[in-house]
Design a protein around this nucleic acid. Structure first.
Length: 201
DNA sequence: TTGGTGATGTTT
DNA sequence: AACATCACCAAA
């Protein structure tokens, strides 16, 4: 259930240029309702993928059953399976027919941390629960069954974060773990936040 | 703290 | 053969 009186971000938030959405998602809170309880955390790292111009985007070579959600309307979740064992989650952006999305790469845990740890491993420190896109999916119980889920719906949604200042600095860098268009600065993160993946700057 | 490697399956 | 990764281990 939704708490703290924060409504989910409207579909119009996602129906914008992908680079804007990727930056604006920093500092928002990601919520997951599962088993009558919620997990939540602040988004601290994202990456943009725009199929029309981006050889690293899954939709660059056309629509398939795997990436179909990316081609659909904005404000839905695109979940894909990779490396034979991991899931990654994206939010679909732009307009219906444009295959663009923002990969959620890291979250600072806020609520339901015991749930996250139960879904991962009992000994994992808070810092590593959601640091990296596949870890984040594990901690939030996200797999292909959530592919296409409506981000204004009851399973997984994103809200404003009370107390997060819109003046908080953000930074960009090349995206992580890709070879195509590797130098494009389409990764966005909160500099200095210790829940961001990768090595400290 | 850094770097190498195996686990795994879908897509190209 | 590559892949939008992670956990583990060893070396320093």
């Amino acid at each position: 259930m939704r708490t703290h009186h924060q409504p989910p971000l409207p579909r119009s938030f996602y129906a914008r240029p992908t680079l804007d959405v990727a930056r604006d998602l920093l500092g928002k809170t990601l919520w997951r309702a599962s088993d009558a309880r919620c997990s939540a955390g602040v988004i601290v790292e994202t990456e943009a993928y725009i199929s029309a111009i981006d050889p690293a985007a899954h939709g660059y070579r056309g629509k398939t059953s795997r990436n179909a959600t990316m081609f659909g309307p904005p404000g839905h979740l695109y979940v894909y399976f990779t490396y034979g064992m991991h899931y990654c989650m994206n939010v679909v952006t732009e307009t219906d027919g444009q295959a663009a999305a923002v990969l959620l790469r890291a979250v600072e845990p806020l609520h339901g941390i015991d749930l996250m740890r139960a879904r991962r491993r009992p000994t994992i420190p808070d810092r590593d629960l959601c640091r990296g896109p596949a870890r984040l999916c594990q901690a939030f119980a996200v797999d292909r069954t959530l592919d296409g889920a409506d981000l204004t719906g009851p399973e997984l949604w994103i809200t404003e974060t009370p107390g997060f200042s819109p003046d908080t600095p953000t930074a960009t860098s090349p995206r992580i773990g890709i070879t195509q268009a590797a130098d494009w600065p389409w990764r966005f993160y909160l500099p200095g936040n210790r829940f961001v993946s990768g090595r400290p700057v």
